[in-house]
Amino acid sequence: MHKKTLISTVVAFSLAGLLLGGCGSKSSQKSASDSTKAAKVTKITAVGSTALQPLVEQAAQDYQASNKNVNLTVQGGGSGTGLSQVQQGAVQVGNSDIFAEQSSGIKADKLVDHKVAVVGMTPVVNPETGVTNLSMAQLRDIFTGKITNWNQVGGKNQKISVINRAQGSGTRATFEGAVLEGKKAITSQEQDSNGTVQKLVATTPGAISYLAFSYVNDKVKAVSIDHVKPTDANVTTNKWTIWSYEHMYTKGQPNKATAGFLKYMNSSKVQGSLVKKLGYISIHDMKVTKNAKNVVTK
């Protein structure tokens, strides 16, 4: 008898699991109405750029601590996913590293841009190449495959191995927009994350790639361009030209709860401390603006 009850318990338990699976969405709605009682909880989902995710996630946690009627979910998935989903109306906010205008298939006029931070990017090389400065033209020639040895630009006699970023990624779009002048980069290794690029450049002799400022550490060497150093201060004046905005897009004007959160993202509380802690440059510090066509105005 004992074994029978045991098996039927297992079966019953598992069937309950199935039921639970089936009715999951119902219980979530219930949970929303249960926990609110007085005020209605608005659910906001932000999806997109993995680079921007930590900032928005942390800000969302702080914001929810004081605004109980908002339930924020922040997820990654990539800029393309973020833009596609906000355009379809599946999520409230689409996080992106690039302007919506720059990606084909997105109707940019339907989306409203909220710039929340600026990220600077710098070329990085393996420290053993012996190079600390490159001219913009040299950098371009390296990435288009015209210069193939470090001794052509004053370094050691060593083959250059270019590590690019994934096609269509925001980092690559920014870099190519600022450096390549519309020329096509050579087909080379591609990695899609700052962390992997950093590890590869640190270990591969003769490697060059580019990273967001916050990922530069002592194992890779950040290169100056035309003797301009990659610093936050140089980005704010556009002396350092490889930088981009981090965008949070909404479809049309945001609803009240979303607008509240976006306002918080732009407040000095976030811009003054959190943005800097995570290695971004505050949007308030910028002395210039850039539009989707890479035109910079003071």
């Binding site: 999951g24 993995t50 930590p54 962390g195 995570l278 290695g279």
Partner: peptide, 20 residues
């Protein structure tokens, strides 16, 4: 069961790729 959740493997991935 309806809350978003990062698992250990995802955390390892995230820390390695975009962790600051």
């Amino acid at each position: 069961p309806m809350r978003p959740a990062e698992t250990l493997a995802v955390h390892i991935w995230k820390v390695n790729t975009e962790g600051v």
